[in-house]
Amino acid sequence: MKNGTNPYIPYPATVEETWYETGGDRCIKTFKVVFDDEKVRKEWSHLPGQCAMIGVLGIGESMISISCSPTEGDFLRFSVMRMGKVTQALHQLEVGDKMMVRGPYGNNFPVDDWQGKKILTIGGGVGQAPLRPIVEYVKANRDEYEGLTMIYGARTSGDLCFKGEFEEMSKCDDLACHLTIDVEEEGWGHNVGFVPQMLLDLNPSPENTIVITCGPPIMIRFVLENLKKLGFEDEQIYTTLENRMKCGIGKCGRCNAGNMYVCKDGPVFSYAVLKEIPEAFA
């Protein structure tokens, strides 16, 4: 938030809606939260790509990407995978419970610079969460962008997040949605195969296009390789990094990749910047 107030103070937000995106041991739960304090709600402004520190008092906080676009309304959405101590506590929150939120942190996708361009998002697994705001943002500002293509894959159909939202997308002609899963399943009407391969099959033209990719490191590596094969320039490719974080404001030191703090200088990096940082894909 603004200078002058203590940036480490989280604000209470009420969980308005919550549902599970996926099942299993490392399930993903989405929370729609609204700040309790009117003033905080008004002052809050974020852009696609930014993150927030969310947590439960007495347990701790985690850096989670905001998975909604500011165009959607006066609320925040977080999709959280159950992994450690904090995310386990978050998963226990139900409608009406309080979550503590501070932020927004990090840089954002340069959405203004991308006006008039085609947007291609390539996501894998929970990596779709930081990509969802850009999809929603482009959907809300359709006139300003040339079009949107989305490639999204997961291990199984059960591991796909935001499933309900894709149907509607494929109905519009300037929005394309391509889904894929790793292994054939009964009743699956979409592609089967890995994301990087699907990218090659679709063969998108690099002309006037911006690519944003997010997912498991191994997927990102092959996606980058294949994008190069398709003739994309480094400046056209964006991705988001993650690292362990504590403060969120570039003080605690642990999230650095090379001379960049992921929480301040990132999490959004263009591949042109990223390839100069030796630690980025560690």
Binding site: L57, I59, G60, K246, K251, C252, R254
Partner: peptide
Amino acid sequence: CHCFDIQDEVEGFDARRCRTWDSC
């Protein structure tokens, strides 16, 4: 060296969020 860790500590019903030196 200025890196720190942030942890929540609970003692009965009182709790605090504290930061401690950390090391890379």
